[in-house]
Amino acid sequence: MTMSARTETTTWWNTVDFREAPPGWRVVSLWQGKRVVHHVAGWLIQDRYELDAEADKVVDTPDEMGRERRVIPGICAEGYGWAVVAIDENLEGGGEENWVVLAPGEAEPTAEAQEAEAKRRADAAAKKAQA
């Protein structure tokens, strides 16, 4: 969230298009110390909006180039009625648990790489807590 003199806002990504992913695309996450692999259902094309956190209405206007746009992997999320959602949407850590996106045929990270990533994350969290 962003604080301004006028209002508190939150970022919202609106899906404007969807493109099916070829078989084999995956997202590897580290969730509560365990590896979780999600198959990518497709690519979500999303436009960025700033919303008034209290009134839940759009408070920004696009410039002459239009809104900021992103393309992000979408997975089918069990907790959301198996709807396709962006990998950082409605997740407890805001997507921080996501580790790597793998292309078809690309090998998953080794156990050693996972241990190193878990250590890196723990060190970063400890450093952040000290700040």
Rank of each mutant, 00 (worst) to 15 (best):
A86P: 09
P104E: 02
I75S: 02
R6D: 15
G42E: 15
C76E: 06
V37Y: 07
K128V: 07
T11Y: 07
E108L: 13
P109T: 05
D56A: 08
I75H: 01
G93R: 11
M3I: 07
R19V: 11
R121C: 00
P23A: 13
H38D: 10
V71M: 07
C76K: 11
R70S: 14
G95Q: 10
V16T: 06
D17S: 13
V37N: 04
Q114A: 15
W25A: 08
D17L: 06
E115H: 09
G33Q: 01
R48P: 04
H39I: 09
R19N: 05
H39M: 05
V37T: 12
V58N: 02
E112D: 12
Q32H: 11
V36L: 12
T10Q: 10
P73K: 04
G42T: 10
G105N: 15
A131G: 09
I45H: 12
A5C: 14
A126H: 10
E106Y: 01
G24S: 14
A131K: 06
N90L: 09
L44C: 05
Q32S: 06
S29C: 07
H38F: 12
A131I: 10
D123A: 13
M65S: 12
Y80M: 08
V59G: 12
V36A: 12
V36N: 01
E96I: 00
V101C: 04
